[in-house]
Computed example of a mutant assay.
Amino acid sequence: MSGSLPEGFQIDLSIEAVGWSDETRLEKIVTRAVAAAFAATDLEVQRGSEVSLLFTDDDAIRKLNMEWREKDKPTNVLSFPGSDPQDDVYGPLLGDLVFAFETITREAEELGIEFDDHLSHLTVHGLLHLFDYDHQENDEAELMESLEKTILATIGIDDPYADRPLVAEGS
């Protein structure tokens, strides 16, 4: 079960760093992950909503992480929510997700998983943040991780948290 995108939903991709796959391949990976998230949950968006994805590098994401989160280090994905929801329906500007190539590559290697699977996981993770899911507290982290595992399982990706401790800290 992978599902499809909500009617009129748009994914806007921008690549601004070297190392990333071509846009067609990235679009396939993230569209599959986003569609699975909508199919496996009750996330609701206005018709014609959009999410923007920026594929960048560690230096650029480190600067954003410092500016917005006061953390002077690169991270794998940052989420920037867009429009405020109306009665739990989000959009039309869902928000922005920013991905760092070097960090994602390093993490995938360290975890012994495929790059595409890790990027899919981070896409789902970032998307859930745009819908106000968080992992600052253990109960929030448990809920968010449970949703991630459920969504990823629908597209054949193993539990990304298996054999790893619960992470209740901002990503």
Results as ranks from 00 to 15, higher is better:
Asp116Gly: 07
Phe55Thr: 05
Phe101Gly: 02
Leu43Trp: 07
Ala39His: 14
Phe101Ala: 00
Phe38Ile: 05
Thr150Arg: 13
Glu142His: 12
Glu140His: 04
Thr56Ser: 11
Pro160Asp: 00
Leu111Arg: 13
Asp57Gln: 01
Lys71Asn: 12
Gly112Asn: 04
Phe115Ser: 06
Ile157Trp: 06
Ala35Leu: 03
Phe131Ile: 10
Asp139Asn: 12
Gln136Trp: 15
Val51Cys: 04
Thr75Met: 11
Gly82Val: 00
Arg47Thr: 12
Ala33Pro: 06
Val98Asp: 04
Leu53Pro: 05
Leu97Met: 02
Gly156Pro: 07
Ala153Lys: 10
Ala33Met: 00
Thr56Met: 06
Ala100Asp: 01
Ile157Ser: 07
Glu102Lys: 11
Glu44His: 10
Leu43Glu: 10
Ala153Asp: 13
Asp59Tyr: 14
Gly82Ile: 08
Gln86His: 10
Asn76Gly: 14
Pro160Glu: 05
Met66Gly: 07
Lys71Arg: 15
Glu70Ala: 06
Asn76Val: 15
Asp96Arg: 13
Ala39Lys: 03
Asp132Phe: 01
Gly48His: 03
Thr41Gln: 01
Glu110Gln: 15
Gly82Gln: 00
Glu44Trp: 08
Ile157Cys: 10
Arg106Leu: 14
Asp134Gly: 11
Tyr161Thr: 06
Val124Gln: 09
Glu110Trp: 12
Ser49Tyr: 04
Ser79Ala: 12
Thr150Leu: 08
Asp96Cys: 12
Glu109Lys: 15
